[in-house]
Amino acid sequence: MKIMYFAWVREMTGKPEENIELPEGLATVHQLVAWLKLQDDVYQRAFADESMIRVAVNQEYVSGDGPISNDDEVAFFPPVTGG
C-alpha cells in the first residue's frame, strides 16, 4: 500500500509518502490510522485530532469507515484551502 501525506500532515510525519505491507485484518481507514499510531509517536502526533484529517483512497474522498486494501493509494491531509 502506498500512503501519502500532504501539507502539515506531511510535515508532522516527516515524509511525503511511504510504502507499507498492509497487515492482515486491517480493513478500514480508521483501522489503518489506529495501527499507524501504534507504530511510531510521529503518527500519534500527526493524527492526534482526527477531525482535522481528510482521507482519499485511490484519489477519491472517503470517510473513516471507507474500505482499504493492500493495492490502494491512501492519502491523509488537512481540509483543503485552494482557490
Binding site: 500532504f6 491531509f77 483543503v80
Partner: peptide
C-alpha cells in the same frame, strides 16, 4: 466552480 473548488480540490496554502 470557485465555491466547490475551494472545498474539494486538494490544494493547501502555506
Amino acid at each position: 466552480l470557485i465555491d466547490w473548488l475551494k472545498t474539494k480540490a486538494p490544494f493547501w496554502k502555506l
